[in-house]
Amino acid sequence: MIIKCPIEAGVEILVYNLIDECINFEYYAIVDINRIWKNQDSRLSTEAGISDIAVLSPNFIFKKEDAGKVYGFIEVKSAGTSLFDTPQIRGQMEKINHYIYTNGIVWKYYCKKEQKWEKNIGIAKTPYSISEITVDKNVFEELMEEIRV
């Protein structure tokens, strides 16, 4: 996917599936929220827009403000996009404690707006290229362990 068609929507599917493999559904639910309208549920929208994916409590009910919690957001960019610290990213971190920012290759985790780790799972044959990339299996396993924590 990352090599053939590195668009954001495709990367988002990969990210969702990876997170889905790593979380315990007894404690967390993941929901694609990038298509909801702003101000439909104040827990999911920020002044900087709406993230792509939310990590929620299993008892979360959309538009019912007293039902459930938002634990974190995941912002996904297209493969090959640099993950700069932008006002959008900072703004989306304002309301939550946990935030993942990724382009599918580089993954950054923030806790309370402070970056805690960064994992680059890709090995490019040429610098800054996504046309010839392989996954570093050891770093991928480290990433999965970090997400499981």
Results as ranks from 00 to 15, higher is better:
Y109N: 00
P127F: 11
E94D: 15
K95T: 07
N97C: 06
Q88F: 05
S129R: 11
E94M: 12
K116V: 11
I121W: 02
T102C: 12
M93H: 03
Y128K: 12
I89D: 02
I105Q: 03
Q115P: 03
P87C: 13
Y99P: 00
E118S: 15
I121V: 12
P127V: 06
T126H: 08
K95L: 12
I121T: 00
C111K: 12
K125D: 12
W107A: 02
K125S: 14
K125I: 06
S129I: 08
I123D: 09
D85T: 12
A124P: 07
E118N: 09
C111V: 08
P87N: 15
E118C: 13
K116Q: 15
G104F: 04
V106Q: 10
K112C: 12
Y109V: 02
I130K: 01
T86M: 08
G91L: 11
K119S: 09
S129K: 13
K95V: 04
Y109C: 02
N103P: 10
Y99L: 05
Q92P: 00
K119R: 09
S131C: 08
N97T: 09
K113F: 04
K125H: 10
K119I: 10
G104L: 06
Y99D: 02
K108Q: 15
D85G: 07
N120D: 13
Q92R: 11
K116H: 06
W107S: 01
Y110F: 14
I121P: 00
H98Q: 10
Y128T: 15
K125L: 15
K112T: 11
K95F: 04
Y110N: 03
Q92M: 14
E118R: 12
Q115F: 02
Q92A: 01
N97L: 05
E114M: 03
T102P: 03
I121E: 00
G91W: 07
Q88K: 09
P127R: 10
K125V: 10
Q88G: 04
G122S: 10
I89V: 14
N97E: 10
Y110G: 02
Y128M: 15
H98N: 08
K125P: 01
Q115S: 05
E94G: 06
T126W: 03
Q115E: 12
